[in-house]
Design a protein around this nucleic acid. Sequence first.
DNA 1: CGCAACATAGACAGACCTGTATATTTTTAA
DNA 2: TTAAAAATATACAGGTCTGTCTATGTTGCG
Lengths: 194, 194
Amino acid sequence: MQDTKPKSKARERIVDTALRLFYSDGINSVGIDRIIAEADVAKMTLYNHFKSKDDLILAVLQRRDAIFFQFFDEQIEKGASKKGGRLGGFFTALKKWFSAPEFRGCMFINTAAEIADCNHPAFQYSVDHKKRFNDLLADAIKASAPDAPAQVVPAIELIVEGSIVTAVMQHSPKPADQARKATRQLLGETWLDE
Amino acid sequence: MQDTKPKSKARERIVDTALRLFYSDGINSVGIDRIIAEADVAKMTLYNHFKSKDDLILAVLQRRDAIFFQFFDEQIEKGASKKGGRLGGFFTALKKWFSAPEFRGCMFINTAAEIADCNHPAFQYSVDHKKRFNDLLADAIKASAPDAPAQVVPAIELIVEGSIVTAVMQHSPKPADQARKATRQLLGETWLDE
DNA sequence: CGCAACATAGACAGACCTGTATATTTTTAA
DNA sequence: TTAAAAATATACAGGTCTGTCTATGTTGCG
């Protein structure tokens, strides 16, 4: 019973549809009318579940966050028993993420770029997501290379962040491989990658 | 006479104003009416110089690109005679950029996030800008650490890109220092930093 | 001067946006 | 079965958006 009970099927359809559209086209480019049309719900159903578009945006980001960490947690766990360890699993996840046909970068970076106002709840939630993502990465580094100097952690965090943005701009998953190689350069023999 | 002659003062005011507003608030959040009000020009003046908003967006990105590279070229050149060399100048530029009060990340990353459509001229121009930015960085690395292995170049490119995004999310210029340190970790004794 | 190029104000079309109001139907659960 | 809860369709208010049209005013220059 650790599963979140679906408050309603209509609500789920709204959030899932909005997530897909916001991610592919950008938040500001997707109107309420399009969301309700593709989710096949009435406009009042949406406004009964969410008091405003901003409210929906936040719900969408929370859903995205849950899906995102579920995927990464799973991939990291899978890597735990393999050669590269948890950190290897992390980079496998990164590569898979970048290789998805619908990949369009990090939704939270994109949201911050669009929202602009750093006091907006969606912006602040995005900042918080990034913090938790960096913590996840730091844990994986610690697990796979416990003897690595502490200073490599922020370095690898920058590398990973850079790889996400670069994968979007180059429309290619290769930056995931570059990030893995760059990380291996930094960790050297303290990490037994592949 | 390497200076681009101003086609008209009104046009310059339009581009400068649009650049400031697009950068601070995002392209989609800034309407034509606001641009002409703050640039203090008539709407027809804008549409006589630019056939559409998309056309203006492209002109704005080109202006941003020119200003951006002028600044980086200058800072890199200044660094050439100092301890860290051209690469040191590059990181000084990065730190100054992040420290500006109006800093809101890389306009081209932000544009790509907002535009979403990778066939849009503004998206493609942004991709091109990134390529030239990476070339600039690669040249600085080559100049300051000629004996460094070739593989460090993409690694440092990712670090720099990551530092830009992270500086926005953390609302702090510190990632510039982290990027410099991470680069020093990679280059080691082949780069005589500070 | 006089003319052409540039800039102005302001109204307006037509589309799209968020959010609300109303009245009806379907679903759920006691 | 029946009453409450949820979802429906549809119209609409009030705002914003890009882009056009017209008619007038200003400015630079030969």
